[in-house]
């Protein structure tokens, strides 16, 4: 964890670099478990309300832009691939490619957020907002505002995670550029990679659950 540019020393309380790496990795996996549970609550709410009002979910999802959603899915899938490549290259001391791959991953994040921004502004414009502020007129189902509460909570929480991930990628990119990582030590790249994959994975669930109903 404790690094200076160029060389990395094992923190004093670990015996070996391997032990330090394994600990960090275990910690990260546990953290991901908590992330899944965090989203799990929203998924539970989703399951419950969808079970209660299936036709409403069907109708409401037609108001979402499938093309934009699908594009974002593709963008994130590509970014997952480039992230994996970055981790792989960083481990093999290929600094240049690793930085390039991280840059592409970061750029994918930017595209994702831009598309999300257009989707959000469109929804806000139409009045398809969380329940209490919902002002869209042409609804047939009284519970439809709840769907948009879910939409904004789920994609919003996910969006925050994407932003955090982008910050982390930027950070490891800078350090990678300075040559902090190599075959002996690449823990931060690897952990950022695991985190980014989870963020992608959650989107892979969100996309069909929100956009592709019916």
């Amino acid at each position: 964890m404790n690094t200076q540019a160029g060389s990395h020393s094992v923190p004093h309380h670990f015996e070996t670099a391997q032990q330090a790496f394994e600990s960090a990795k275990l910690g990260m996996w546990l953290f991901l478990v908590t992330e899944i549970l965090l989203f799990g609550v929203l998924f539970c709410i989703y399951i419950m309300y969808r079970g209660l009002y299936p036709e409403m979910f069907h109708e409401a999802s037609l108001h979402l832009n499938r093309v934009m959603g699908a594009t974002n899915t593709a963008v994130l899938l590509i970014s997952s691939f480039t992230m994996a490549m970055a981790v792989h290259r960083a481990k093999h001391d290929d600094r240049v490619t690793a930085v390039r791959m991280l840059a592409i991953t970061f750029f994918c994040g930017v595209i994702f957020m831009t598309i999300k921004y257009f989707e959000y502004t469109h929804k806000i414009h139409e009045g398809l907002l969380p329940a209490g502020m919902f002002s869209y007129d042409h609804v047939t189902h009284v519970k439809m505002p709840l769907f948009f509460s879910l939409y904004f909570m789920m994609t919003g929480l996910h969006g925050i995670h994407v932003l955090v991930g982008m910050g982390l990628i930027l950070w490891v990119m800078v350090r990678c550029q300075r040559g902090a990582f190599g075959h002996a030590y690449s823990t931060p790249v690897e952990l950022t990679g695991i985190y980014w994959h989870l963020v992608d994975l959650i989107w892979i669930y969100l996309f069909p659950l929100l956009y592709l109903i019916g």
Partner: peptide, 22 residues
Amino acid sequence: ATPVIGITVLLIVMERVLQIGF
């Protein structure tokens, strides 16, 4: 267990701020 209370109280905040209505 703690993540569950975390998001739940956050949803209470959201209920009050954005009126999500869950």
